[in-house]
Simulated scan of single mutants.
Amino acid sequence: MSERALVIERLNKIFTTPNERVVALREIDLQVKQGEFITVIGPSGCGKSTLLKIVAGLDVEYDGKVELNGQQIKGPSLEKGFIFQEPRLFPWLTVEKNIAGDQSLKDPKVRGKVHELIRLVKLEGFEKAYPKELSGGMAQRVSIARALLRKPDILLLDEPFGALDAFTRSHMQEVLLNIWETNKTTMIFVTHDLDEAVFLGQRVVIMNPRPGHIKSVLPIELSFPRKRSSLAFQEMRRTVLNEFEKVEEESYTVGAGI
């Protein structure tokens, strides 16, 4: 895991409207290694989702360098998979057809890949089911499988488990880690949940708002599988929480004009 998959240097993003000019991101520097799992946390409005959309190529109006595998990101591509908070499945298509997308299941290679992914995300037996017949967690697994079918170099996840109940969320975290360990896909996962950030990430990126910038990057030196009840996990969580509380204090000070 030595090659740099993603390189971000001096990234700045400004939103301009007729009435105001908002600096959303300022001087973002971040490097992500091939096969690394990064989690990103920070207060609302710190630019987490904006950063993810730029890496995905969904927003190309920015200043700075954003490169994937040595190539400047200039738009969406198959090398980048994106998972939203909601599944965004086609309600008239079955699970297997949603995963296949524009590829034909009549092709034995496509069908084989689709059913391999269905096994990977633990949806065997639901191949012919429609989205309305799935739980929220199951639908999100279909979204992940659909993104993985294109074999992206990097998978970008924007609070994908935020709308799920605690039990389903915990299960989905385990599923995602299994996918990551199996495929070795580089992942950047945005979340508001500190426990989730520590449980999943090899490094936690903490962002500060007004304007959005990286406050700190903390390595999570815990082996997988991780147990939230372990002393080592609780100590690491405390370390991240202490740093996050500094960000919240600074955000309040700036927001209050102190």
Results as ranks from 00 to 15, higher is better:
T39M: 06
I99S: 09
E27V: 01
V32E: 06
I188G: 04
D153H: 13
I258P: 02
G257N: 11
R169L: 05
S223I: 04
W180F: 08
Q85S: 13
G137M: 02
D102T: 14
V240T: 03
I258N: 09
R88S: 04
P160S: 06
I206V: 15
L120H: 12
S77C: 05
V23K: 14
F15I: 14
V110F: 12
E174H: 06
L89Q: 01
K74A: 07
P219G: 06
S230H: 07
E67L: 11
D107M: 07
L89G: 12
S229Q: 13
K106F: 05
L156D: 01
V23P: 05
K151P: 03
E248M: 06
E27L: 03
K65A: 13
A145F: 12
G257P: 01
K184P: 07
H192M: 12
P108Y: 12
L194V: 15
G42R: 03
D59M: 03
K151T: 13
D165G: 02
P219L: 08
T253Q: 14
M1V: 08
A139E: 13
Y62E: 01
I154K: 07
D29S: 12
E250G: 00
M207K: 02
R21T: 15
T17D: 11
G45A: 06
L58A: 02
S135D: 12
Y252K: 12
I258W: 14
E27I: 02
N12Q: 07
F244R: 04
A197G: 11
D102S: 15
P18S: 13
L200N: 04
L200G: 03
E249W: 03
T50Y: 06
G162V: 01
T191Q: 07
M187L: 05
L78G: 10
